[in-house]
Amino acid sequence: MAGAELEILKGITLEIKSGETVAIVGASGSGKSTLLGLLAGLDEASGGRVDIDDVQLSALDEDGRARVRAEKVGFVFQSFQLLPALTALENVMLPLELNGQDDARALAEHYLGRVELAARMDHYPRQMSGGEQQRVAIARAFAARPAILFADEPTGNLDTRTGAHIVDLLFELNREEGTTLVLVTHDQVLADRCQRRLRLDAGALVGE
């Protein structure tokens, strides 16, 4: 590895408009997750720039990007990424608390109700099925009312039926909240429900 530089993404220029739903598709190793990480400000690019609204992410350090994530960005992950030590309610409250919102609890309860988990609020992730955990994750993502929501293979760890239900929920909430949605997926059905599809191949954007 020393000596040979590895180029993961090449010459990608793209603009995503507010409220748009975009799917990033491509084979394993094509650079989908890397692109998502950069767009969401989870990662630092070695070159180029990423802007969210008027903020130039690539000019910020990690703490600056963290603030942008807290204000504008929401996530839904393939492996749910709930904190095992927290109950469903506490997990949803977490980003609200980080934002210093006073009505964290009420908001969290509202969104948990919205994903039909009002009865499971005090349960821990390990007491829930994969689909339920992902619904908690969706509630958490929307509760912070982000401008843009990134989803990384949101159905990857779920069976087809549960996956379909999650996707319905995701798009439903997206419509209601007017959030921008960027998702990475292998799932053609899911990709087809987005307004735009970006195809990556070996780090390059090969078409929409």
């Binding site: 990690e62 603030r67 994530r69 807290a70 996530f75 990424q81 980080l98």
Partner: peptide, 16 residues
């Protein structure tokens, strides 16, 4: 570490 990664993805700064 994973816990912190989640907190950070949700917007927590390193100072926090």
């Amino acid at each position: 570490t994973d816990y912190v990664a989640i907190l950070k993805s949700l917007g927590a700064t390193s100072g926090r």
